[in-house]
Amino acid sequence: MRFTIGDHRAARITCETIFPHDDHAELAGAEHLDIENFLDDIAAHAPWRAVLALKVAFLVCMVSPLLTLGRFATLESLAPEYREKALYKLLYHPNYFLRQLVAVIKGVSALLYSAYPSNRARILSAPRPLLQLIRSPSKVP
C-alpha cells in the first residue's frame, strides 16, 4: 500500500502544525523536512495495516476542525493558530482512538524532525537556560 499525493499533502500540513518553526528554540520547522520520501520509505518497509492506520490518521487530522472546533472546514483552510488549537484538542480528545491517531503521527514525524541535522545538533548541543513556554503548563485543554 502506498501513500497518495493527498496523503503527502495532509502529512505536510499536520507535521508543520505539530513542529512549527520557532526562532527561540533555534529548531528548524517541519517545512524543511522531506516528509514525502520518508513516508514512501515507511510504505516500503511497514506492513500495510500500519500504512492504512497512518492514512486514516492524516485524514482525521485534516477534518479535525469539525471534530474539535465544530467548524465545517479542513485543517488546511484554517489559520496556523487555529490549526494548532484543532490538533491540540484532538491530541487530548476523550475518544481514545482519535487521540492515539494524533499521537502516532506525532511519534512518526518526530523520527524525521529530530533526525534533521541542524535539529539533532541543536538538541545535543551544550545546555542553555530553559526556554519560556507560551501556554500555562498546567492548563487542561
Binding site: 494548532e84 491540540y88 523520527l111 501556554r135
Partner: peptide, 18 residues
C-alpha cells in the same frame, strides 16, 4: 533525540521549545 518528542506533552511552539 528522535524519541524525545513522543514523551513531550502538547504540540506546536511549546512542544518545539520543550
Amino acid at each position: 533525540p528522535e524519541l524525545v518528542p513522543v514523551r513531550c506533552p502538547g504540540l506546536g511552539v511549546d512542544l518545539v521549545r520543550r
